[in-house]
């Protein structure tokens, strides 16, 4: 056992994992500080789930090492299981058992579990405490799954697709639960493809694409890499004279697709564009302005959009 405490809660070094000919994780290194909410963001097949499975010690990497609170996840499994709570994306529970029965069962696996009633209440399942797992809605099953990840008072929690399948109200409730976890000093590793969730919760985000970390920064830091701060889209009733918008102060990029025009830039962009259009006698309709977000950063960094799986139903 090392005498000096590790500085990081999770330390993954040069992880590599392939399934047959398919490389799931090419080369992933990341370091999660204690007490941090760390996001892993990426599309389906980017290697998110494999990465967390390697970190949770469920899968054996072909190469590389993972330490959680200084414990080697493959060799110190017994210790690891005491301090690491895991919510798996595709794991279900005993179908015929009720919420209370399942929480009580999992509680017996740990030294100092959270009392069942308290835990069930914290994820908003008190009214369904006597409902069998198979009769719960998808969102309720998800919440129970999160409760079970927390029952042993873990110091590090892995949450895989935390709010997939939850309605907006339940989603916000889950987010407060995660924020309370951070307040109590728990380190959270959050796998997600929901931008809003990552932007709101995460201190830092690793952006995964094709089995690699393509960027690692705070959500705000990632947004900066989108290459622009604002975007304005509008429909032009008549053609916009060439060079009109490109020459404006603060404009970085102009794209036209038929009568639809997209302008990206910074500063008082909307004002500048409107004035220029009016002066040129171009009538603009359906004008929409938006701040750059993680979505845009994702496109800038990987070359493709993330939202193709936003509607994925579990």
């Amino acid at each position: 056992m090392p005498a000096t405490p590790p500085s990081a809660a999770v330390e993954a070094e040069r992880l590599h994992k392939r399934y047959g000919p398919k490389v799931a994780v090419e080369e992933i290194s990341l370091s999660v500080a204690t007490g941090e909410i760390f996001g892993i963001l990426g599309r389906n097949g980017a290697g998110k789930t494999t990465t967390v499975e390697l970190i949770a010690g469920i899968r054996k990497p072909d190469r590389g090492t993972v330490r959680v609170l200084g414990l080697d996840v493959r060799r110190d499994r017994a210790r690891l299981r005491q301090v690491l709570g895991v919510q798996l994306q595709d794991a279900t529970l005993h179908a015929a058992l009720t919420v209370t029965e399942l929480v009580r069962l999992y509680a017996t696996f740990y030294r100092d579990p959270v009392p069942a009633g308290e835990l069930i209440e914290s994820v908003g399942l008190t009214a369904s405490a006597r409902t069998r797992f198979e009769s719960l809605s998808g969102g309720q099953q998800q919440r129970l799954s999160i409760a079970l990840a927390l029952v042993g008072r873990p110091r590090v929690v892995i949450l895989d697709e935390l709010t997939t399948g939850l309605d907006p109200e339940a989603r916000r409730q889950m987010w407060s639960t995660v924020e309370r976890l951070r307040d109590s000093g728990v380190t959270v590793l959050l796998v997600s493809h929901a931008m809003e969730e990552v932007e709101r919760l995460c201190d830092r985000v690793a952006l995964l694409d094709a089995g690699r970390v393509v960027a690692l920064d705070s959500p705000a830091g990632l947004v900066k890499r989108a290459g622009f701060a604002q975007r304005i889209t509008f429909r032009a009733a008549s053609p916009v004279p060439g060079g009109l918008l490109e020459g404006l102060a603060g404009v970085d990029r102009v794209r036209a697709d038929g009568d639809r025009v997209v302008v990206e830039g910074r500063g008082d962009l909307l004002q500048a564009v409107s004035v220029a259009l009016v002066r040129a006698g171009v009538v603009a309709t359906e004008t929409r302005g938006e701040q750059a977000g993680l979505d845009d950063a994702f496109v800038a960094l990987t070359g493709h959009r993330l939202d193709t799986e936003e509607e994925k139903i579990r």
């Binding site: 056992m1 090392p2 405490p5 590790p6 204690t34 609170l69 200084g70 414990l71 017994a78 210790r79 005491q82 301090v83 005993h94 179908a95 015929a96 058992l97 029965e101 399942l102 009580r104 069962l105 017996t108 696996f109 740990y110 030294r111 069998r132």
Partner: peptide
């Protein structure tokens, strides 16, 4: 940070697991 002592689930966990398994079987007529 690594002063983690191992708590191995004991007879209570086994009893609870057994009861849960029995309930599962009994409910699956």
């Amino acid at each position: 940070m690594t002063d983690v002592t191992v708590h191995r689930p004991g007879p209570r966990a086994f009893a609870e697991l057994l009861i849960c398994e029995l309930k599962s079987v009994a409910r699956d007529t």
